[in-house]
Design a protein around this nucleic acid. Structure first.
Lengths: 153, 153
DNA sequence: GCAAACTAGTTGAAGCTTCAACTTTTATCG
DNA sequence: CGATAAAAGTTGAAGCTTCAACTAGTTTGC
């Protein structure tokens, strides 16, 4: 096997900053949401995606894709949310295999409450700490990353 | 409580791109390292930090801080690495409470092998996908995030 | 119209992380 | 000095994620 194309010093520095920063960032988001609202980040994400869907309902597979979770993980997470009363499962009329996750009124209320605090945390540790130009660069960069992954290319 | 300072459309877009992208990115890194080398990302990180330390040894607390892991998590991870023969635990002469994690020769070899593949994955999905200027912006941004978190301010 | 292949979703076990409790040693300070 | 507090690590249980196996329904192709 040929010699790998190692990162140069600058690339290494930038990559590391990202890795460390993002680990710490998600840790904070998680701790914060859990402490104030008893939700994990992945539960929160599910609620967000559902809240944005038409009629606040989505097929499991689509929800999983939206939230970048595996189907299995979504199943478990959904069960937890269901037992908290934040989500309900309906059966799908057009496909008997299908299951539709529905955000309950209670779930929507919980999300509204959580979002108020969450946005503050996101601002304090991310948005307001970063130069607007750099934030745009981040958006561009990660959009490209996502496109590369999902779009195939 | 006052009305939260919601993100505007652009901020929201950028933040989401980052969240989704980073989730997918770590998932790939993890799957890749695990499949080819039987290492999780957090195990890999431990090996990296140790390999860069003088004499490839570090106090547990320092290692935990370097790798952004909790002490407890490091303890468990270290036990796993130890049972794989990649890390050894020495006692600390100056502080009888202390434990020093040492990278074994085998551990260093495993790291070298893993790093060759890992750098390729990092390039394919991140470095080579992003404009150099945007990469620099990421470095700047996440350095600021880290500074805000650890530096206090 | 039926068998083979595929898709949707769930389940339980195994693995990893988090949390709180605990032991041992060191630092603080009256 | 001696007591109290604080720090270093570990441990086990509980919680979440991953993985592989499974059920059930749908599609394909002959």
């Amino acid at each position: 096997m040929s010699e790998p194309r190692w990162l140069d010093a600058t690339q290494q520095r930038d990559w590391r900053a990202y890795v460390d920063g993002s680990v710490r960032l998600t840790e904070i988001m998680d701790r914060d949401l859990k402490a104030k609202h008893g939700l994990s980040v992945s539960e929160y994400e599910i609620l967000v995606r559902l809240s944005e869907a038409p009629e606040r309902r989505l097929r499991m597979a689509e929800l999983a894709a939206n939230a970048s979770q595996s189907r299995s993980r979504l199943s478990h997470t959904c069960s937890r949310l269901e037992s908290k009363g934040l989500v309900r499962r309906d059966s799908c009329p057009s496909d008997k295999r299908g299951v539709i996750a529905v955000l309950t009124a209670e779930g929507f209320a919980a999300l509204e409450r959580a979002a108020r605090d969450h946005v503050e945390t996101v601002r304090n540790h991310f948005i307001d700490v970063i130069e607007p130009d750099d934030l745009e660069a981040i958006g561009r960069a990660f959009t490209a990353v996502l496109k590369k992954m999902t779009g195939g290319a």
